[in-house]
Structure formats: C-alpha cells, structure tokens
Design a protein around this nucleic acid. Structure first.
Lengths: 222, 222
DNA sequence: GGCGTAAGCGGACTTTACCCCGGTTATATT
DNA sequence: AATATAACCGGGGTAAAGTCCGCTTACGCC
C-alpha cells in the first residue's frame, strides 16, 4: 500500500501534494455548488481549504485550471461508462449505435457540467478547453475508424464531429437558455446529433474532389 | 417625472461616443499588431488612446469585449463578401457549392484572426464568443434551407455545422500548431469540411427515428 | 440661441489573478 | 538513521480587471 511505485517518468506526485489536490478540488466543488462558479476565487478557495494561496496556484496554474481539473476529473468517470459500461454506450453494440449513444451521453454530460465547462474556457491560454486530444475526440475517432467509411481524413472528421458536439454547448447557447430549458435542449441536440451522424455515416460520397491526393503529411497530425 | 418616450431602438449612439469607440478599436489594433494580443491591457489602451479607463470599460464592458468588438467588425467586412461578392462564395452558385466555399473562407478567416478570436473567449460570460446567433450560423442555416434536404431540425443542424467549422480552431487546435503550419491546417480542414458537407447533404437518410415528431416547440428556438 | 437632461467621461478605489522566494518537509539513497 | 535533494508550502507583493460616482458635454426641445 505505501509502496511508492514510480510511474513512467515524472516522479510520482508527493503524498501531501496529492492530498492537498484532492482537498482543493473538493473544496472548489463545495464553493461552486454553494455559491456558483463565478464566486470561486483563488484566495477564497485557499482560505476555505486552510492552505496558502501559493499552493493553489502551484497546483492549477490558473483560475481556469481549477475548472479544467474538475472537468477532467468528472470526464474520467464518464469515460469509464463509455469504455466498460453496458451497450449501446459501452462496447458490444454496432459502432454507429455507439456513436449515437455517445453523442447523447456527451450532450447530457456537458449540460450537467455547463458551469464548470464554460469556466474552463480561457482566452489567454493557447489551448483553451482541457487537453489537446480530448478523450471525446479520441473515442469518436475510434468509432469512426471501426465503421470503415471512406473518409479522406479521419482525424479531421473526428475533430469536426467533436466540435459539433461540444461547440453548441460551449460556444453558442446562452447559459440562460440552458438553465431554463435544459431537457428540451438536450433532446433537440440529441436528435440533431443522431441525424447528423446518420448522414455522415451513410457512405454514399464521391471520392475526394481533388483526385486521390492523401492528406498532406503526417496522418495523425492535427 | 417627464417620461421620455422610449424608442424601439435605444437612442442612437452619441457622436463623441462613436468617435471614441472607433479610436479605441483602432488603438487596440495597433497594440495587438505591435505587441500581441496578450499585451493589451485596459489601462494601457486607455492611456494610449488618451482617454480614461472608465470610458474603455463603458464601451466594452470587459477585456474580452474588446476582442469581440474587433472580431465583429472584421466579420462584418467578411460577410459583405459572402452576401454580395462573386460566386461561389457570393450568390449565384448552387447552395452546396456556396456552403463548401463558405467553409473554406471561414476557416481562412478564423486562422487569420486566431489571436483575436481566441482572446474573445471568456469563461466568465454567459455567451462567450460574439453574438448568440452569429452571422455564420445564420448564413449556413440559409444555405441548408435552400437545399431542401430532409433534415428534422434545421436550426440544430446549422448550429452543429457552425460548431464543426469554428470549434477546431477555437477549442482544439493549439495556437502553436496554427502558427507553425497554418496553410496546411487550413487545407486539411477545408478538405474535411468539403467531405463533411457533401456527406451531410447527400440526402439519403431514413426518417427520424422516433417517427414524424416535429421539433419540440418553437421552431426557431435554439 | 438658451435650457434640461440623459449620456458620456475620468480617474481614484477595490478586488483578484498571478509571481516570487525563503523556509519546510517528504522521499530516495547510503 | 542520517543526509541530500527536490518538491512543496505560505503569504506578502504586483499589476491588471472591474466598479463607482461626481463632473462634463452633446443632443433634443422650446
């Protein structure tokens, strides 16, 4: 139990650091559910957790970083359902059905986490929301690949579909709308996603317009 | 009290205010091209424009607001090309071709404006990027409508395609990648968009899964 | 042209994100 | 167990965002 297993390279997180990180995340959740995300301040968080301000910044680097960490945490749980839960979300169903189910689930997840997800956006960072290859994109890419549709550039397609899923909730829908009519919005977006995916995966598309030129260079770049 | 008749529109902008707004936008552009978007500070902007800080905040409400205003300004010019320029971007071509051309143009525009567009994101506002019905979405909606594909919910589809266009550049691609390999990225995304749109518009899709239920309530809601 | 009023303006004030660095403590090694 | 070292902690300091309120000015009306 107390065995400090050394992970790959970056020297495992020190025990006190890990404890404090958990404490800070939990405290952040308290503040958010109690007073709303926009009332979360670095000072306040530190004080309420009984820690110094420097500690908070060391852990999360920036205010948005806290929300990214929270989102990451919840996404991990969500992803577990996707990877090992019952079909059609989990493995065992046809890729197309899984993709549709995944979209609906993701929409629900984002609506449930809209406060945090929005607050995780930060115009001053080079890559705003979460990681550069979000789990969502990876999963969609995987399902698309299994379907063997003749897409010219799977990476781009996966990125665009991920955006079609996240974008409306992160970029275009006002949180007022979301708060007032969340269930209807979820249902509409879910149907829309199903329709979109069904069209995209119908596989009746002419070859690439410019001849058979493969994607520019590295196949996995973007 | 003498009730001043409330006009439908909120009483045109005062002349000095308009002049100052233009001055501030121009000054902001100077700073951005000269020193980069992240060097733009409200104090600095006010001082360089020879105005008070309060004025800057009154005009743009928030730091991100400045970038939103700049983007809005440039988008207006861009949109002029779309509405009255030569085909296939402008009117005169088939809707599908216009949609493809629009996507490519929009990608180019966003890559060219990536600094501003990213900085316009703000996790503390209810609707982060620009307006709630961006011109982009409206235009896409219009073209889709002309195509008469049997989409269940055009508004949602338009929103999702808009996101597929904006999302990759706003949310997922690191600005490092963009700066280093902008042309290749533009080309790949452009091809991807063409492929995506061609699939979506192939019109060989079964009816909606749950029968012929129309979208929940208001047709133009989302 | 003179007047009333709403809008605009400025800059001091408050709050908050973020930096820094000396002191402390967990962990690996011997 | 003692030591070396690297990571962690704290809290004061800075600069920038955002607020307030009294003064000024443009605009519509008489």
């Amino acid at each position: 139990m107390g065995q400090p297993v050394i992970w790959g390279s970056p020297r495992a997180e020190r025990a006190d650091a890990a404890r404090n990180r958990r404490l800070l995340l939990a405290t952040a959740r308290e503040i958010i559910t109690g007073q709303g995300a926009d009332k979360l301040t670095m000072d306040g968080l530190a004080k309420r957790a009984g820690l110094g301000k420097g500690t908070v910044f060391r852990r999360f680097r920036t205010r948005a970083g806290i929300f990214q960490a929270l989102l990451d945490d919840d996404e991990r749980h969500f992803q577990k359902q996707v990877l090992s839960g019952p079909p059609p979300l989990g493995p065992g169903a046809a890729p197309l059905d899984r993709l549709i189910a995944y979209g609906r689930a993701r929409i629900g997840f984002l609506i449930g986490h809209r406060q945090i997800a929005r607050a995780a956006l930060d115009g001053r960072e080079s890559v705003p929301a979460g990681t550069q290859t979000p789990m969502s994109r990876t999963h969609i890419r995987f399902l698309l690949e299994e379907m063997c549709l003749g897409a010219a550039d799977l990476d781009v397609l996966a990125t665009q579909l991920t955006a079609a899923l996240d974008g409306p909730l992160l970029l275009y829908l006002s949180s007022a709308t979301l708060t007032q009519t969340a269930p209807q919005v979820a249902e509409r977006l879910g149907r829309g996603w199903e329709d979109l995916v069904q069209r995209v995966c119908a596989r009746t598309v002419a070859g690439p317009p410019g001849g058979e030129i493969p994607p520019p260079s590295a196949a996995t770049a973007i």
